[in-house]
Write a protein that binds this DNA or RNA. Sequence first.
RNA 1: GGCGGCGUAGCUCAGGUGGUUAGAGCGACGGUCUCAUAAUCCGUAGGUCGUUGGUUCGAGUCCAACCGCCGCCA
Length: 676
Amino acid sequence: MSRKFYITTPIYYVNARPHIGHAYTTIACDTIARRQRMLGADTFFLTGTDEHGQKIERAAQAAGKTPQELTNEVSAAFRSLWDRMGITYDDYIRTTEDRHKLRVQELFRRIRNNGYIYKGTYTGQYCVYDELYVDAVGPGADCPECGRPTETVHEENYFFKLSAFEDKLLRLYTDQPDFIRPETRRNEVMSFVRSGLRDLSISRSTFSWGILVPDDPKHVIYVWLDALANYITAIGFGSPDQADQQKFEKYWPADLQMIGKEIVRFHCVYWPAFLMAAGLALPHGIMAHGWLLFEENKMSKSRGNIVRAETILDVLGADALRYFLLREIVFGQDGSFSFDALVQRYNADLANGLGNLASRTLTMIARYFRSEVPYPSHTAARRPADDAIADLSRKTISECHTLFDQYQFSRALETAWGLVAAVDKYIVENEPWALGEKQDEESRARLGTVLYTSAEALRIVTALAHPVIPDSTTKIWAQLGLGETKKFPLSELKWGQLHLGTKLGNVQAVFPRADKTAIERMQKMEERDASAATEAQPAAGSASGGTFAAQVGGAPATSARSAVSSSDGKISIDDFAKIDLRVGQIRVAERVKGADKLLRLEVDIGTEVRQVVAGIAETYEPDSLIGRKVVIVANLAPRKLRGLESNGMIVAASPEGGKPVLCSFLEDVPMGTRLK
RNA sequence: GGCGGCGUAGCUCAGGUGGUUAGAGCGACGGUCUCAUAAUCCGUAGGUCGUUGGUUCGAGUCCAACCGCCGCCA
C-alpha cells in the first residue's frame, strides 16, 4: 500500500467567471498534486464549484435565468478552464449535485444527533452579499464587511453550538502548529477564538436555493456548512454505497486544504468544529495563500481589473503562467501580477534560462555525437569542474525537496535555476565548441564529459521543475530521449541516471522568446474581453465581488481595461470633448463608514448637486473641504462604492505610491464652468 | 479602539538563537564568447538595513517610542 495524499482547492463560488486569481490557487494545488504523484503517493486532487445561496438566486433572477441554468454555465466555465490548463484534478464536485446534497443532509443529521444543533430565533440585520448575519449594526445600517445595505430579518433558525468548541479548537491550534499556515493567519485565528465564540446560525428560511434541512423543508442549510462539506462528500462521506465509504476511509482526512486568506475563518474555525461535532477526523493542514494583486490593486470584478487566464494561455502558454505565479510570488504572501513582469520572467528564466540551456546542450550532442548521449570520462579527461556540477546537482535535489515540501515554491524554483546558471557558466568555461573542432582522443573524451555533465544537469532540473511546468519539461525529456516525465519516481532522482548512448529526440525550442508585442497583444485581448462583457451585461454590478478600493471618484482602475482610441495612445480633440469637466463646489463632506480612504461629498455644479464618493480621506479632513472648488468629471457613468452611488469623479493628481491631491484654481471660477 | 504582522539596493526578495567589508535574482550600464532562443559568460551599480532613543565590547538581527503600510476583530 502506497502512502495516500488528499489535497483540495476551495470550491469556487459561481458568482464570477474564473480569472487568474482562481487559477493561482488551482495551479498551486495542481503542482503539489503532480509532485505527490511523482513521489509515489496515491494522490487525490479535488476541486469544484460552490453554487448555492441567495446571492446566486438573485443573480439568476436578474439575468432572467433559473439558478441552475446560471450555475451550470459558470461551473462549466471553470471546468473548461481547468481542462484547458491541464489541471489534473481527480474529481470535480458541484454543490448542486445530488450526491453532495444527500451527503450534506447526512452530515447535518450526524451533527444534530450528536446534540450540537438546536432551534432558536434570530432577529437582526442580514447581508445578502456576504450571506452573513451582522449583529453589530442596527436596522438600516450597511454591512461592515462590504458596505452594502443590510436587510432586517426575523428568522427561526437552526443553530450550531460553536461555543462548545472553543477549548478544543484552541488545543488543536496549540498541539498542531502546522494546522494553519502561514503563522500570521494562525495568530489571527487564535485571537479570534480566544475572544469567544458564539453559536452559529446554520439555516436560512428566507430563500430556497440551497439544500433542505432534513425533516424541516422550510429551511435550507447555511451555505458555508453546505460548501465546506464538499471536501468529504466528494470522496464518499455519507453515501450508503460500500465503495464510496471505502474511498472516504482511504482518503480522509485531507493532507492539505488550500484556501485564500479571505476564507480563513470558515476553514480554520467553523470547519474543524463541524467535523468534531460530527465525530470526524480533522484535516492535517490548511494553507492560506495571499491575494493576487493587479498592479498593486486587488483583482475583482467590481474594480474591472480582472485578468483572464485564457489571455496568457493564448500568448505564452500554461507553463508560463504557472512558472510566473509560483516563482514570482512568495507563497502565502500577497503578490502582484502584471503583463510586464510576466513577460520579463518568461524571457529571463524560461526562454534564456532553461530553454536556451536545453537548446545549446542538445544541439551540441546532436552535432558532435550524432544525437547519442556521450560517455563521461572518469579518468584523465575529468576535471574538478565536472564534479562540481555533479555535487551542485545533488545539493540542488535535496534543497528543492525540502523547499517544495514546505510549499516554498519561489525558493524551490530559485534553487533549481541556480543549477541552470551554473551549467551555463560551466559550458562557457569548458568551451565544448572548441573541443569539437579537435579530433585527438583527449579532446574527444573531454567533449563527451562536458556534454554529458550538461545534459545530466539539464535532466535533473527538468525533473525537479516538472510539477510546476509539466508541458515544457515533458518536451525536454522527450528531446533527451527519456520516457514519461510524470511517471519518473522523483524520490529516486540522483546524479548519473542518464545513460550512455541514449538517443535524443528532435531538438526544438521549448520556450520561444516573447517579443515586445506579447504584452500589447495580451492587453488588447483583455480590453476586447472587457468591452464585450460590458455590452453583454450592463448591470453586472449586482452580484459582483470583492473589495472596493479607494479610487478618486470611483473610476475603474487604470489597467488593461482603459480604452485606447488609436494605436499610438493619442486621442483626438473629439475624444477629449466627450469628457465633461466642470467646476463644482463642495457642500457636504463626510467619511464613509468602514472605509479608510473614502469620503462622501455633495458637490454643487451650478445646475445640480451631485453625490460623489472620492478616495481622498487620507489627504483631506472632511471639514477642510467644505466650500472648496474642485474639478469634477460630470458625465461619468454612476457607480456604487460602499453602497453609495457616486455620480462623477473628482479630479486629483495621484502620485505613484503617494496620496491624491485635489486639482484647484489660483483664480476664482464660477461653479459649473466647463473645462476645455 | 484591541490584537497581530510588515517596512533591507530601481524592482522582487534572503538575511535561525546579535559578531569580519549587509547578500541574491531581475532590470540598467560597459565588455566577451559564438554551441545556443540577438541567448550565455564577465565586470560595474556603493542601499543612514522606516525614524529616534536604549541594552551590549558589538544590532537589519534584542527592547521602547514614533512614522508609514497591511491583516484579523463573526
